[in-house]
């Protein structure tokens, strides 16, 4: 199958964690095993919006246990005889192959997935900055000839792009190195934050220059964080920035000789 596959390089591989759990969008061709009236197919596909139960297929890399997945939208684009083209926005871990099979069961005639293309993975979409393997090979060799950095920047994006959908917390310079050493985020370090944060929300901590510092789980809501003067407000899950990028500005105990 084809489509959006974000590939993270070296230290950026740590942000993959944030992408794995992000929502996806696919365009899919489903093949029905019998010709059915268009309205009936559309009605049944419409029922597969919202929360659905799904048991992972036999060839799956997870435990085969029925689980709930959210389908944000499912839009039929075209129906031609037994082929149904549709677009689906869904939660991470939804198997479209299985979705097609289940639609076939409900219709009573059976169906299977014929072709699939992923059109979105978190903040990455197939418009604009997407490149093929050929582009990567060509632009890399062009860079080696010209040593022109803009060529590399054309297809290698900063890892911060992958974190666009997470609520941001911006922190002051003095808090950065402590976070890089694995400390949890406390209230005085915060300069600003985005709405939509609650206890347990996955967030990303940024510097004032816009660099990602760490992935963290908030332990309080927006309002609580604004009011607080001290105490932990987000627990550090994954440090993204190397230690020593910013100066160390906290005091540690002197070891007595």
């Amino acid at each position: 199958m084809t489509g959006v596959l974000p590939v993270a390089l070296e230290d950026a591989t740590k942000v993959v964690h944030a992408l794995l759990g992000s929502g996806k969008e696919y365009v899919c061709v489903m093949k029905l095993h019998k010709k059915l009236p268009e309205n009936r197919v559309k009605d049944v596909l419409g029922e597969f919006q919202g929360k659905i139960f799904q048991r992972p297929p036999i060839r799956a890399s997870v435990k085969r246990q029925t689980r709930v997945r959210k389908i944000y939208y499912l839009e039929v684009l075209e129906i031609d005889e037994r082929n149904v083209l549709f677009k689906v926005g869904c939660e991470a871990g939804t198997y479209i192959r299985k979705l097609c099979y289940d639609v076939g069961e409900v219709l009573g005639c059976g169906a299977h997935m014929h072709e699939l293309r992923r059109t979105r993975s978190g903040p990455f979409t197939e418009t604009g900055d997407i490149v093929t393997l050929h582009d990567v090979a060509y632009l890399h060799s062009k860079w080696q000839e010209t040593q022109d950095l803009t060529v590399l920047r054309k297809f290698i994006q900063p890892m911060e792009k992958a974190l666009e959908l997470l609520p941001k917390i911006n922190v002051r310079d003095s808090a950065v190195d402590a976070l890089c050493h694995g400390a949890h985020l406390t209230a005085p370090g915060i300069v600003s934050l985005e709405t939509g944060i609650e206890a347990g929300t996955k967030t990303c901590i940024f510097t004032l220059k816009g660099e990602a510092v760490a992935l963290a789980t908030a332990t309080a809501t927006n309002q609580e964080i604004i009011k607080k003067n001290h105490g932990i407000v987000a627990r550090n899950d994954r440090v993204l920035m190397p230690r020593g990028t910013y100066p160390k500005l906290w005091h540690s105990k002197q070891l007595k000789p």
């Binding site: 959006v4 596959l5 974000p6 590939v7 990455f124 490149v131 093929t132 297809f155 900063p158």
Partner: peptide, 18 residues
């Protein structure tokens, strides 16, 4: 970001071939 770092902290939006 300067050269080696922009690779180190880089991500590519790749169109996967079938």
């Amino acid at each position: 970001r300067p050269y080696p770092d922009m690779l180190r902290f880089g991500i590519i939006n790749l169109d996967k071939p079938p």
